[in-house]
Design a protein around this nucleic acid. Structure first.
Lengths: 257, 257
DNA sequence: GATCAACTCTATACACTGTATAGCAATACG
DNA sequence: CGTATTGCTATACAGTGTATAGAGTTGATC
């Protein structure tokens, strides 16, 4: 128990890591004196996830979360630290890896299963994509996702030099699909009118729009597919990736016609 | 000149679109009476880009931009509208499509050239990736990038059903690479210590880390490549994509060994 | 049991943010 | 010349994260 050693910064980092990994055998320091705590870390994170699910990540303010728990904003600090640390914890808290069996029939099938689960997670918590995943070492749940993906790549003997690229591509594509799906979902609301108004206004004011951007204009039919069926689009991307890597069990590239 | 018609919302949308497309034959409404304006839209956007380049997109506050111009915060409103509209304009303002000749030797070469230019743009303005590109119809420069990409896909006869997926994948991968590169660049600063401290603290506290995440631990050598040389990584991804699509001029898939 | 240190939680305050509102000064039109 | 219109400033208000101080509660120690 060397929590009292080191500078204040070091102790803050250690406390944060302990909270992140609190369900993986690491003890979050419990105070020995003082009034009984009314909450614990998970209670705070549940409340924060509730706020984020309801009103987006931007609505997760210290005061909003605290109000949900019947506390004042400053009371949260001893549970989850700074706002930045709170967001770290919230993202990981909502990112639990579900259980599933790899189909095992092909690399594409296994990777698709992984990607679809991650996409479904983002569907449940659309605000997850708002925080970039590359910034920090991440919590246990994020690590679980990565390790599971690497497990698949290893099993199908994806060459080492390609693994990092595949990892980044898969995360990026799933997040992009999730973001687009979220934007599409939001389009059912009042923002739909604003979006449309802006698009039509652009078409009306920019007189040479059709001349300048014929291919953009020709795209929408397909783009609608992409918006409405992100899962299919992700699956398609995974297949292309597997074919490009020459993994076993993938159909030959379709001719460029 | 029907600027005076419509609701206040409609007029705001129209003013915003006019400002976005101000260099493409659309006139931004000039007042007829009152004191001479000391600035114009581009001056405000130059200042905002300056702030963003120096201190990140989060530092772009109305007061900060105004201070750079020797004005008060409220003076900006008549130039660039709301803060959200300002950010829209800033992103597009910094996203000018550079001029380059397509190599034309292969689809991969043309797509790589496009992706490398976009990556270089993100390198010059690392904050560009902080704003998602899928949310709004976007300004002229963003449209230029998209149209240029679609041009390449058309020339190499990428099947229509794959185009939307390729577009999203390329944007997503370039942005992810840019973000990682930005994080890596930031690592030279004071954050490096924080990042490292957190990583080592995690390894120290989570005793079964190596047992749980052997593949994650085996990755870093390659991940370092990815971080240090994002251009190479993007190029690699483009090649994999092209092979997966069966585009002409691409090497056969490397064996899965 | 009294004392003291440790601790939780609240209240307040401060520096920020975006932006609504009101007023002063400058300009162009009738 | 008015006078309407506009640029810009100043002020104000509701937010934000969080530093600080204090009130109240608990466990350990004498």
């Amino acid at each position: 128990m060397d929590e009292a050693t080191g500078s204040a910064d070091e102790r803050a980092v250690e406390a944060h890591v302990r909270r992140l990994w609190r369900h993986r055998g690491v003890a979050v320091p419990q105070p020995r004196r003082g009034p009984r705590r009314r909450l614990d870390v998970d209670a705070v994170l549940d409340a924060a996830v509730g706020v984020a699910d309801a009103d987006g990540l931007a609505a997760v303010s210290t005061r909003a979360v605290a109000a949900r728990l019947g506390l004042s904003a400053m009371a949260l600090y001893s549970y989850v630290g700074t706002k930045d640390q709170l967001l770290d914890l919230v993202v990981d808290h909502a990112s639990a890896l579900p259980a599933w069996e790899d189909p095992g029939t092909s690399a594409a099938a296994d990777l698709t299963a992984w990607a679809e689960r991650l996409l479904a997670l983002h569907g449940r918590h659309p605000w997850l994509a708002e925080r970039p995943w590359a910034e920090a070492p991440g919590g246990p749940h994020q690590q679980d996702w990565l390790e599971r993906l690497l497990e698949i790549l290893e099993r199908w003997e994806v060459p080492g030099g390609s693994r990092a690229a595949v990892v980044t591509t898969l995360y990026a594509v799933v997040e992009a699909a999730a973001r687009t799906a979220a934007a599409h979902a939001r389009t059912s609301g009042a923002d739909a009118a604003a979006w449309l108004a802006r698009a039509t206004t652009t078409r009306r004011l920019v007189t040479d729009y059709a001349d300048r951007y014929p291919r953009t204009l020709a795209l929408p039919q397909h783009a609608d597919d992409w918006r409405a069926a992100p899962a299919a689009a992700v699956r398609h991307t995974v297949e292309v990736l597997c074919r490009g890597l020459g993994l076993p069990g993938c159909a030959a590239p379709s001719g460029a016609g």
